[in-house]
């Protein structure tokens, strides 16, 4: 039995060394470098006016995107699971489409439709609404990239749940809204929370699509991820590392939350 044990050790070592050098050491190093000089510089870097502004822009954009995708996610899930209509498979497939699209292509697509020199963008501009290089465009880009997350979290649970209880509520005279609020929503609560956390994390961390549509205007449309890149390119490593560490901590919290919320199957 010496040979299987040897191969087991070999595989374990190979897997762990790969993860160590690809994942653990790089992420660990940046956290170590950020906190190497103590907590003071970390907080100084994150409380500079530009960083605070970037935080605010990130939060605004992410919140709008999460609200929009949560409402869409609940509606689309109920539609896909509880309703019958022609083209259902197509809609189901199209919801996954955003994940196959490069973030840069997302940005380009939105510029082509909503940019100042396009018919739609020009019309909106004449009404005083600027989409591209402004918050609405960044929200659209963020909605695009995080669109499938809530739907994909809720659909399996809604399928598992079945609709017997909802039908019972209907026979007992509950309105659709009542049945949704009292029966469906409690049933999908943890799956919905899981999807919302994934969506929020993705929205806070989006870089490529937002980089294209925001125009990357410092102190105007700069999000936290754009701040990381801009600070790094301008040789301000401490600020770039501090913001990157803040984003990494958000990612770790997300990871732990999703582990708690993930539906057990």
């Amino acid at each position: 039995m010496a040979k299987p044990r040897l191969s087991r050790w070999g595989l374990r070592t190979l897997a762990l060394v790969y993860l160590l050098f690809l994942l653990v050491l790089p992420v660990g190093l940046i956290i170590w470098r950020t906190f190497g000089a103590g907590l003071g510089p970390f907080f100084d870097a994150l409380t500079s006016p530009s960083a605070v502004h970037a935080f605010q822009v990130t939060l605004t954009v992410a919140l709008w995107a999460v609200v929009a995708n949560t409402i869409f996610g609940i509606g689309a899930s109920i539609l896909l699971v509880r309703h019958r209509f022609p083209g259902k498979r197509l809609l189901n497939a199209l919801i996954d489409l955003p994940m196959a699209v490069s973030p840069v292509v997302v940005g380009l697509a939105l510029i082509l439709v909503y940019g100042r020199y396009s018919p739609v963008g020009g019309l909106l501009e004449s009404w005083g609404v600027q989409v591209i290089f402004s918050t609405p465009g960044m929200v659209l880009a963020t909605v695009f990239v995080s669109l499938p997350l809530v739907v994909r979290a809720v659909v399996p649970v809604l399928e598992e749940l079945g609709d017997e209880q909802e039908q019972a509520a209907h026979t007992l005279g509950a309105s659709r809204l009542q049945a949704f609020r009292r029966i469906t929503l409690p049933g999908i609560r943890s799956a919905l929370a899981y999807g919302v956390v994934l969506c929020l994390a993705r929205s806070l961390g989006e870089y490529g699509a937002v980089a294209v549509v925001s125009g990357r205007l410092v102190d105007q449309t700069q999000t936290l991820t754009l701040f990381v890149e801009e600070r790094f390119q301008n040789f301000d490593q401490p600020a770039a590392f501090a913001a990157a560490t803040a984003l990494a901590l958000i990612a770790v919290i997300t990871l732990l939350l999703t582990k708690l919320l993930r539906p057990k199957d």
Binding site: V24, V27, I30, L204, G205, T225, A240, T254
Partner: peptide, 24 residues
């Protein structure tokens, strides 16, 4: 280790690039 596997999905891509640049 099992939890860490999902970290690349949770980490913003620009941060992923930055951490790799810090080590390599």
């Amino acid at each position: 280790v099992d939890t860490l596997i999902d970290l690349p999905f949770a980490l913003p891509t620009i941060v992923a690039g930055l951490v790799l640049l810090a080590l390599y």
